[in-house]
Amino acid sequence: MLHFASNLDSSIHLAFTTQAEGNLALHVNDDPHLVGEHRARLEDSIGVRRFSLHFMNQIHSTEVVHIASQRRTSWTEPEAPTCDALVDPTGREALAVMVADCLPVLFVAKDATQKQTFTAAAHAGRRGLLDGILTRTVGELQAVGATHIEAVIGPAICGRCYEVPESMAAESEESRPGIRSNTSWGTAALDLPASAQKELSDLGVSVQQSGVCTLEDERFFSYRRSSRSGRLAGLIWPKT
């Protein structure tokens, strides 16, 4: 796993899984029992109880859900919330976001007194990023009392590799200046990590980048490399 440290709360862990941890998604035509085993091993390795990771049914939206502690005995009941960001107002839950080229973004936040920690995990693909999922997540953190916020942008496809049609590049650049880039082979592309960093920085968020391209680095899953790809997870959880 790729680990990061929080500058706001040293008791919070942030990490991104690799292919070594296996596919963690139930929606990619994998054996659900095998996915369950991968999730169980992952929870054991990070020291959280079984079935305590909060996953999402991600749909490339701007929906944000505030989660609460719950006891579950399977990954299907209750169903994962349909959204693209989770906010934990307590900072005590284990959150997960799954990707295979899109941006996994993890947030740690504190209130003005520096006594309360809040956490969040967001999924930002091209559509969600353009529609404002990251700004919405920051707004939800501020709504629960956050005044200091940091974010880690995990492994994702980079601006040298995310080739898109010329029309899509032009449309995206019109709505979000600076997002357009060029591939290393000279065609139209989008740079989602750089655009996300600028958006968050403009909101006053301190940002760390993993600097890892999922297409270039074969340790990570990439949908562009294989449409049958599994999903890696961005994880944020407290020390126990």
Rank of each mutant, 00 (worst) to 15 (best):
R92S: 14
F107N: 01
P89K: 03
I133Y: 00
S69E: 11
P81H: 09
V144Q: 06
T62Y: 00
A124E: 00
I149F: 01
T82S: 13
L103I: 12
E150M: 10
E140N: 10
R127T: 15
I59R: 13
T117S: 12
H54K: 11
G139L: 01
A94D: 02
L129E: 03
R71A: 15
A96D: 03
D88S: 08
V87H: 02
R126T: 15
V99L: 03
N57I: 10
A151W: 01
K115S: 14
R71N: 15
E140T: 01
H60S: 15
P81M: 09
S69P: 06
N57C: 10
Q58M: 12
I67F: 05
V152I: 15
H148G: 07
F107V: 04
A121I: 09
T73D: 11
G91M: 04
F51G: 06
R72M: 09
G47K: 03
G139R: 01
L141H: 02
F55T: 13
L141P: 01
T135V: 12
P78C: 09
C102G: 05
T90W: 08
C83N: 06
L103C: 12
Q58I: 14
S69H: 11
H148V: 12
G128R: 00
L106H: 08
V99W: 00
Q142R: 15
N57H: 12
L95K: 04
M56R: 06
A109C: 10
A94N: 03
T147H: 08
A109D: 02
A120V: 10
T137Q: 04
W75V: 02
T135C: 05
D111N: 14
H66K: 13
S61T: 13
Q58S: 14
A80Q: 11
G132Q: 02
D111F: 02
V99A: 12
Q142K: 15
G145P: 05
T90C: 07
R49C: 11
A146Q: 03
A68P: 01
A143K: 13
Q70E: 15
T62A: 00
I46Y: 02
H60M: 11
L134K: 01
Q116D: 07
T82F: 07
V64H: 00
H123L: 12
R49L: 11
H123Y: 13
G128L: 02
R50T: 14
M56F: 08
K115L: 14
T62P: 01
L106S: 08
E63V: 15
S45I: 10
Q114C: 09
G91C: 03
A124T: 07
G125R: 02
E93R: 09
S45L: 08
F107S: 01
T113H: 11
V97D: 03
Q58C: 08
V48E: 04
A121F: 10
H66E: 13
Q142P: 00
A151L: 09
S52P: 06
P78Y: 07
A109P: 03
V138Q: 07
K110H: 11
L141M: 04
S74T: 15
V48H: 05
D88Y: 04
Q116M: 12
D111S: 00
R92G: 10
T73H: 12
T82I: 13
T113Y: 09
